[in-house]
């Protein structure tokens, strides 16, 4: 079930470019909307993540980072894999909130496939229900350090 991690390692100026302009695609796999609101909080003037070149894009083709919120349900699994395969590589995956990290209170449910890293490779986990915008920004910074 797990997709291959077919990332290319970028070097030199390409690496600099990716570090300075990570475009984010926000993918909700059926979360309770709480993490999504916290992600949108990070875009507000108070936090202003465009300072670091982070822009929210509408299509996985443009994305460098997939922010996944919510548990991976049986229904959403094929769509999740589809979106991950559509994203132009190198593409990093961040699990936002307790649900994609572990499954949280849904762990063991009949509709729960498992934590996100069972399905696609995950680079950074941001636990919390919901995580604060500060935590999300810190998670993105840690992702950039891994590039």
């Amino acid at each position: 079930m797990k997709t291959e991690n077919n990332q290319r390692q970028l070097r030199g100026i390409d690496k600099w470019g990716l570090k300075k302009s990570p475009w984010v695609f926000h993918l909700s796999t059926g979360s309770c909307n709480n993490c999504d609101i916290e992600i949108l909080d990070a875009l507000t003037p108070r936090f202003d993540i465009e300072r670091f070149g982070i822009v929210l894009v509408g299509t996985p083709r443009h994305a460098d980072v997939l922010l996944v919120t919510g548990i991976v349900t049986v229904q959403v699994l094929p769509r999740l894999l589809h979106v991950y395969e559509q994203a132009a590589k190198p593409c990093f995956v961040i699990a936002v909130g307790t649900c994609p990290c572990t499954g949280g209170i849904f762990d063991g449910s009949y509709h729960h496939v498992g934590p996100l890293d069972k399905v696609i490779p995950v680079d950074v986990y941001i636990p919390g229900c919901p995580p604060k915008p500060e935590a999300i920004i810190s998670g993105v910074v840690k992702t950039l350090a891994r590039i």
Binding site: R8, L10, I13, D14, W16, G17, L18, K20, S21, G53, R61, D64, Q86, A88, K89, P90
Partner: peptide
């Protein structure tokens, strides 16, 4: 910022 965007897009996979 715009230069970084262009450099990054140039290095990425074209689908």
């Amino acid at each position: 910022q715009p230069f970084a965007d262009i450099i990054k897009l140039r290095a990425k996979e074209s689908i």
